[in-house]
């Protein structure tokens, strides 16, 4: 049987880990995608809509 404080700290601990995991995923995913875009553009591939402000698809 755990003490009440142990349940509280386990809850906050798991919450912290989950939230930090989400933040790390969002940051690392964004960095990896930006790197890929830079590499593609460096190899001469350009978006057709580059230079236009409208009329593009995601």
């Amino acid at each position: 049987m755990m003490s009440h404080a142990a349940y509280v700290f386990t809850s906050y601990g798991i919450a912290t880990l989950t939230v930090l995991g989400l933040i790390a995923w969002v940051i690392l995913d964004g960095r990896a995608r930006r790197r890929e875009l830079v590499e593609l553009e460096a190899s001469g591939v350009r978006r057709r809509s580059a230079g236009q402000a409208s009329g593009e698809t995601p």
């Binding site: 939230v19 989400l22 933040i23 969002v26 940051i27 995913d29 964004g30 995608r33 930006r34 890929e36 875009l37 593609l40 553009e41 190899s43 591939v45 350009r46 978006r47 057709r48 698809t57 995601p58």
Partner: peptide, 29 residues
């Protein structure tokens, strides 16, 4: 926190789709 993460994840998803589109373009070329 949700809105911060959601906007950042949406940005990542847009970038991911651009990478896919560019790769397809490169393959076609």
């Amino acid at each position: 926190l949700f809105f911060t993460l959601h906007i950042a994840a949406m940005r990542n998803e847009i970038l991911r789709r651009r990478v896919t589109a560019l790769r397809r373009l490169a393959a076609r070329a």
